[in-house]
Design a protein around this nucleic acid. Structure first.
Length: 350
DNA sequence: CCTGGCAA
DNA sequence: TTGCCAGGG
């Protein structure tokens, strides 16, 4: 989860956020931050005591369950998801990643304690915090998506940056993530809460609320706030990003907005920031020009029943009848929503 | 997170 | 038909 999200959400004018129905995204291609999605499945798909789904060899399978059923739901709704996977994180992110490692290690300890004390709600909470995505999980997810016939994209660095690049180019309609980073990376829009069943548990209480998909339009943010992307990036830097987790002391959204609006040139704003160990100019440049690639193809294939069953049923002990049922839904919606649009010159469709 | 069985 | 919720792996 990005710290950027926490603060910048308050800044986004309500006019820039549109609550929608999933069906209104019919025909849209969306570049989804795969890490963001997998991480959420891994954190959420757990028993009340925090135990994730596992196969008979003890390997975690929560992420596979999540991405399998979610993706089929999206395709059924006529949405064409393209999962974008992270490459190597930029060195700028090291401090934040170290911070996250520590938080997760602490949570893992607290999880053990909570389990020993039979405090299961607490255990679940710490299990979620300590969630980690490893290379094996990523590999398996890519293998599954490939078997399902979906294109995947390997980003050279940040998935959010790559997704933003693809949206900016027009290869996809939008980026998809729970975070707002792709906006700073230049995406024209980001879709959040990309899901069918709209119930979500609130952090503390046993209360469930309806969550609807929402589209955030970048240009509306800029119009309403009277700023441009450069200035939004600098606001992000002042509030704290993955590349400078601490932000700038004493600066909140109101002050940040006031500061950027009081200058004409971005250069001047950057110069006005307090001199610290952090190279704000470097961070700014990274958001403006992150490492991205054109080395990807957006092309769908017929879903492979055998491969899907091999991965889920044979390898990971998913229930065969359930998987078969889901595959049928996939094949049917693939024909209706994907294949029908790939004829002739539109083979490389968007 | 998501599905599917069951009660109302 | 809808809503709930236990259980998925």
């Amino acid at each position: 989860m990005s710290i950027l999200g926490v603060n910048i959400r308050e800044l986004i004018p309500p006019e820039a956020i549109k609550e929608i129905e999933l069906e209104s995204l019919k025909g849209r291609t969306i570049a989804i931050d795969a890490y963001n999605a997998l991480y959420q499945f891994l954190a959420a798909i757990r028993q009340p005591d925090g135990t994730p789904l596992i196969d008979n060899k003890g390997r975690v399978t929560s992420h596979l369950s999540g991405i399998f059923y979610r993706t089929i739901n999206l395709i059924e709704a006529g949405i064409k998801p393209i999962y974008v996977f992270d490459g190597l994180p930029p060195s700028l992110k090291e401090k934040e990643l170290e911070k996250r490692r520590k938080v997760k290690e602490e949570a893992a300890k607290k999880y053990q304690v909570a389990i020993a004390e039979e405090k299961y709600e607490e255990a679940r909470k710490y299990a979620q915090i300590s969630t980690r995505l490893n290379d094996e999980m990523v590999k398996e997810a890519i293998k599954l998506l490939d078997a399902m016939g979906l294109p995947t994209v390997q980003a050279p660095a940040e998935g959010e940056a790559q997704a933003a690049y693809m949206a900016k180019k027009g290869d996809v309609w939008s980026s998809g993530s729970q975070d707002y980073d792709s906006i700073l990376f230049g995406s024209p829009r980001v879709v959040r809460n990309l899901t069918v069943s709209g119930k979500r548990k609130l952090p503390k209480k046993d209360v469930y609320i309806d969550i609807k998909p929402e589209v955030i339009e970048s240009n509306v943010i800029y119009e309403k706030l009277g700023i441009n992307r450069e200035k939004l990036i600098i606001i992000g830097i002042m509030l704290g990003t993955d590349y400078n987790p601490d932000g700038i002391k004493g600066v909140g959204i109101k002050t940040a907005l006031k500061i950027v609006k009081s200058y004409e040139k971005t250069e001047e704003i950057l110069k006005s920031l307090p001199q610290t160990q952090v190279d704000y100019y470097e961070i700014f440049n990274y958001f403006m020009n992150p490492e991205v690639t054109d080395n990807y193809t957006i092309q769908w294939k017929e879903p492979s029943v055998e491969k899907i069953k091999e991965i889920l049923v044979e390898e990971h002990d998913f229930n065969e009848a359930r998987v078969e049922n889901a595959i049928e839904r996939l094949q049917k919606s693939f024909k209706e929503n994907v294949k029908s649009q790939t004829k002739g010159l539109d083979f490389w469709f968007k």
